[in-house]
Amino acid sequence: MDVFMKGLSKAKEGVVAAAEKTKQGVAEAAGKTKEGVLYVGSKTKEGVVHGVATVAEKTKEQVTNVGGAVVTGVTAVAQKTVEGAGSIAAATGFVKKDQLGKNEEGAPQEGILEDMPVDPDNEAYEMPSEEGYQDYEPEA
């Protein structure tokens, strides 16, 4: 019985440690998101679009440190934060509304985080759909 109880105690310690790591990862992701939003706020009209992409990228980098179902929630929060940063930029006159959601080359930025393969159960990952990809044929 002692062996059984000791095993359960060790398992509990492992769960607590994993929860603490997840909590730490979420806190880091939130900190990076805040950094990115402050970065966007300090940019001029020309830099705002690039700044919004930076927020998304920093958040995406930190999301990889967070495991399990938390990833889905962090990704949703990050996307809403990026959308909010863009709205703030438009409201303050840093950028025109028609410039939001495009990178410096004018290509749409939507789907940055949505296409990231995420499995809350950590069982399997699927690649994003290939609808947006084109076949590449090298020139002879």
Results as ranks from 00 to 15, higher is better:
Met5Tyr: 04
Gly51Gln: 06
Gly36Gln: 15
Gly25Tyr: 08
Gly47Leu: 08
Glu105Phe: 08
Asp135Thr: 12
Leu113Tyr: 09
Thr22Val: 07
Glu46Phe: 04
Ala30Ser: 03
Met1Trp: 00
Ala30Gln: 01
Glu126Cys: 07
Gly51Cys: 11
Lys32Phe: 14
Ala124Asp: 11
Val48Ser: 01
Thr64Ala: 07
Met116His: 11
Gly93Ile: 09
Phe4Lys: 00
Gly68His: 15
Ala78Val: 12
Ala29Cys: 10
Glu20Val: 03
Lys34His: 04
Glu137Met: 04
Val55Asp: 00
Thr33Ser: 07
Thr33Trp: 13
Thr81Trp: 05
Glu83Cys: 06
Thr81His: 08
Ser87Leu: 12
Glu35Gln: 04
Val71Phe: 08
Glu130Ser: 07
Ala27Gln: 14
Met1His: 00
Ala27Leu: 15
Met5Trp: 06
Asp135Pro: 03
Val48Tyr: 07
Gly101Trp: 04
Leu100Ile: 09
Gln62Ser: 12
Glu83Asp: 03
Val71Cys: 06
Glu83Lys: 06
Ala124Glu: 12
Val55Glu: 00
Val40Trp: 01
Gly106His: 05
Asp2Met: 05
Val16Gly: 04
Asp115Lys: 08
Gly36Leu: 15
Asp98Asn: 14
Ala56Arg: 11
Ala76Glu: 04
Tyr133Thr: 13
Lys58Trp: 11
Asp2Val: 00
Ala107Gly: 09
Pro120Lys: 10
Val55Phe: 11
Glu46His: 04
Ala89Val: 14
Ala140Ser: 15
Glu137Asn: 07
Val95Gly: 13
Glu61Pro: 04
Lys10Asn: 05
Val26Pro: 00
Gly47Arg: 09
Thr92Gly: 08
Glu114Ile: 03
Leu113Arg: 13
Val95Ala: 01
Lys10Gly: 01
Glu83Gln: 07
Lys21Val: 11
Ala19Thr: 04
Asn122Glu: 07
Pro128Trp: 05
Pro138Ser: 07
Ile112Tyr: 05
Pro108Leu: 06
Met1Thr: 00
Lys43Gln: 03
Lys97His: 14
Ala17Asp: 10
Ala89Gln: 08
Ala89Arg: 14
Ser9Ile: 13
Ala27Gly: 04
Glu126Lys: 08
Tyr39Met: 12
Met127Gln: 12
Gly47Ile: 05
Ser42Gly: 07
Glu28Gln: 06
Lys6Pro: 00
Thr64Gln: 11
Glu83His: 09
His50Ser: 06
Thr81Ile: 08
Leu100Pro: 09
Val118Asn: 10
Lys97Ala: 15
Ala11Lys: 00
Gly106Met: 05
Gln134Thr: 03
Pro120Phe: 06
Met5Ile: 00
Pro117Ala: 04
Gly31Gln: 09
Ala19Glu: 00
Asp121Gly: 10
Thr92Gln: 04
Glu130Phe: 10
Pro128Tyr: 11
Lys10Thr: 03
Ala140His: 06
Pro108Asn: 06
Ala78Lys: 03
Tyr133Cys: 06
Gly14Met: 12
Thr33Leu: 04
Asp121Val: 04
Lys6Thr: 04
Glu46Cys: 06
Gly36Tyr: 03
Ser9Glu: 10
Ala17Val: 12
Thr81Leu: 10
Val3Tyr: 11
Val15His: 00
Gly31Lys: 13
Ala78Ile: 15
Val63Trp: 12
Val77Trp: 14
Val26Met: 09
Asp121Leu: 12
Ala18Glu: 00
Glu126Ala: 15
Val15Ile: 09
Phe4Met: 02
Glu137Tyr: 10
Ser9Pro: 00
Leu113Val: 15
Gly41Val: 08
Val52Trp: 09
Lys34Pro: 00
Glu20Ile: 06
Tyr133Ser: 03
Val74Thr: 02
Ser42Ile: 13
Asn65Phe: 08
Glu13Gly: 04
Pro138Asp: 10
Leu38Gly: 01
Val48Asn: 00
Asp119Asn: 07
Lys45Tyr: 07
Thr81Gln: 09
Glu131Arg: 03
Lys10Gln: 03
Glu139Trp: 10
Gly106Tyr: 10
Leu38Glu: 05
Ala29Val: 09
Gln79Phe: 06
Ala19Ile: 03
Thr64Arg: 12
Glu104Phe: 04
Thr54Asn: 09
Val52Leu: 15
Asn122Arg: 15
Thr59Asn: 01
Val15Trp: 04
Pro108Tyr: 04
Leu38Asn: 08
Ser9Asn: 15
Leu113Lys: 07
Met116Asp: 07
Asp98Ala: 08
Ala107Val: 03
Leu113Ala: 13
Val63Ser: 03
Gly67Asn: 06
Val15Ser: 00
Lys45Ala: 13
Met1Asn: 00
Lys10Met: 12
Ser42Leu: 12
Phe4Arg: 00
Leu38Phe: 11
Asp98Cys: 08
Glu13Cys: 07
Phe94Tyr: 11
Tyr39Trp: 02
Met5Pro: 00
Val95Met: 07
Thr64His: 11
Tyr125Glu: 05
Glu104Thr: 14
Glu114His: 08
Ser87Trp: 15
Val70Met: 09
Glu110Phe: 08
Ala140Lys: 13
Ala90Asp: 05
Glu28Ala: 13
Gly101Lys: 15
Ala90Phe: 05
Ala56Leu: 13
Met1Pro: 00
Asn65Ala: 14
Ser42Ala: 13
Ala17Pro: 00
Pro128Ser: 08
Gly68Asp: 12
Glu130Ile: 08
Ala56Val: 11
Val52Thr: 01
Val55Gln: 01
Asp2Ala: 01
Glu130Gln: 12
Pro120Glu: 10
Ala91Gly: 07
Ala30Leu: 10
Gly132Pro: 03
Pro138Ile: 04
Gly14Cys: 09
Ala107Tyr: 04
Thr33Gly: 04
Pro128Leu: 11
Glu28Met: 09
Val71Glu: 03
Glu123Ser: 14
Gly67Met: 14
Gly7Pro: 02
Ala69Phe: 15
Gly51Ser: 03
Gly36Cys: 10
Gly84Thr: 10
Thr75Asn: 12
Glu57Thr: 05
Ala140Val: 07
Val118Trp: 04
Gly14Arg: 07
Thr72Met: 12
Thr59Ala: 12
Lys12Ser: 09
Gly106Ser: 12
Gly7Gln: 07
Lys32Arg: 14
Met1Gln: 00
Ile88Cys: 04
Thr64Met: 07
Phe4Glu: 00
Ala17Arg: 08
Lys6Gln: 02
Val66Gly: 04
Ala90Asn: 10
Ala89Tyr: 07
Phe94Lys: 03
Thr81Ser: 08
Gly31Phe: 05
Val82Cys: 05
Val16Met: 15
Lys45Ser: 06
Lys58Phe: 13
Pro120Ile: 10
Lys12Cys: 15
Gly47Pro: 01
Val26Lys: 00
Asp2Ser: 02
Val82Ser: 04
Lys32Pro: 00
Glu137Leu: 04
Lys6Ala: 10
Ala140Glu: 07
Glu57Ser: 07
Val52Cys: 09
